[in-house]
Amino acid sequence: MRLVVDLNRCQGYAQCAFLAPDVFAMHGDEALLYDPHADETQREQVLRAVAACPVQAILVDDGPDVPDPPGPAGGDAAGRGPSGVR
């Protein structure tokens, strides 16, 4: 299960860290740390955390596993290769 958190939307209410502490954790008062590739055994807790988020900042992506975007040598997240061309 892949998780995406909109860290610009997250306000640090920490409901997710309370409901799924093995996946989400607060670092300080406002910074959220989370495992973007949460284990399937955590699904129930994660779904509760998603539902409890007051600003709806958490998305569960159940689609096929998509590899992380390539680094600078392999192009960028927009799909452009090292030369900047698609």
Results as ranks from 00 to 15, higher is better:
residue 57 A to Q: 05
residue 13 Y to R: 03
residue 58 I to R: 01
residue 4 V to E: 09
residue 81 G to I: 06
residue 19 L to T: 11
residue 81 G to W: 12
residue 42 Q to E: 14
residue 47 L to Q: 10
residue 51 A to M: 05
residue 2 R to S: 09
residue 49 A to G: 13
residue 30 E to A: 15
residue 57 A to Y: 00
residue 20 A to R: 01
residue 64 P to H: 06
residue 30 E to R: 12
residue 72 P to K: 05
residue 71 G to E: 07
residue 14 A to V: 04
residue 81 G to N: 15
residue 37 H to C: 04
residue 23 V to N: 02
residue 75 G to S: 07
residue 56 Q to P: 02
residue 73 A to D: 13
residue 78 A to E: 15
residue 63 G to R: 05
residue 9 R to F: 00
residue 72 P to E: 10
residue 4 V to M: 03
residue 72 P to H: 05
residue 3 L to P: 04
residue 74 G to Q: 08
residue 57 A to P: 09
residue 25 A to I: 06
residue 11 Q to M: 13
residue 55 V to F: 05
residue 57 A to M: 04
residue 77 A to Q: 13
residue 82 P to N: 02
residue 37 H to T: 05
residue 12 G to W: 00
residue 40 E to F: 07
residue 69 P to E: 08
residue 2 R to H: 10
residue 8 N to D: 15
residue 8 N to V: 08
residue 13 Y to I: 00
residue 54 P to C: 02
residue 3 L to R: 01
residue 65 D to M: 10
residue 48 R to I: 02
residue 84 G to D: 02
residue 18 F to I: 13
residue 23 V to P: 02
residue 78 A to W: 12
residue 27 H to D: 14
residue 20 A to L: 03
residue 32 L to E: 07
residue 14 A to T: 09
residue 73 A to V: 12
residue 65 D to A: 14
residue 26 M to L: 15
residue 5 V to F: 03
residue 66 V to I: 14
residue 53 C to S: 06
residue 42 Q to N: 09
residue 12 G to N: 05
residue 48 R to G: 08
residue 86 R to A: 12
residue 61 D to E: 14
residue 29 D to A: 14
residue 60 V to E: 04
residue 17 A to M: 11
residue 81 G to Q: 08
residue 33 L to F: 12
residue 62 D to S: 12
residue 77 A to M: 13
residue 13 Y to G: 10
residue 15 Q to P: 01
residue 81 G to C: 13
residue 55 V to K: 06
residue 83 S to V: 03
residue 3 L to Y: 01
residue 37 H to M: 10
residue 44 E to V: 13
residue 80 R to C: 11
residue 55 V to N: 11
residue 86 R to T: 08
residue 44 E to G: 02
residue 14 A to G: 10
residue 64 P to Q: 11
residue 54 P to L: 03
residue 62 D to Y: 02
residue 41 T to P: 00
residue 41 T to Q: 12
residue 63 G to S: 15
residue 1 M to W: 02
residue 76 D to W: 12
residue 50 V to T: 11
residue 21 P to T: 03
residue 20 A to C: 07
residue 68 D to Y: 11
residue 52 A to M: 04
residue 75 G to W: 09
residue 28 G to L: 09
residue 84 G to W: 01
residue 80 R to G: 05
residue 35 D to W: 03
residue 61 D to C: 13
residue 58 I to D: 03
residue 41 T to D: 11
residue 22 D to N: 13
residue 3 L to W: 00
residue 12 G to P: 01
residue 16 C to G: 10
residue 7 L to R: 15
residue 62 D to I: 01
residue 46 V to L: 06
residue 16 C to W: 01
residue 81 G to D: 15
residue 82 P to W: 07
residue 54 P to A: 02
residue 20 A to M: 03
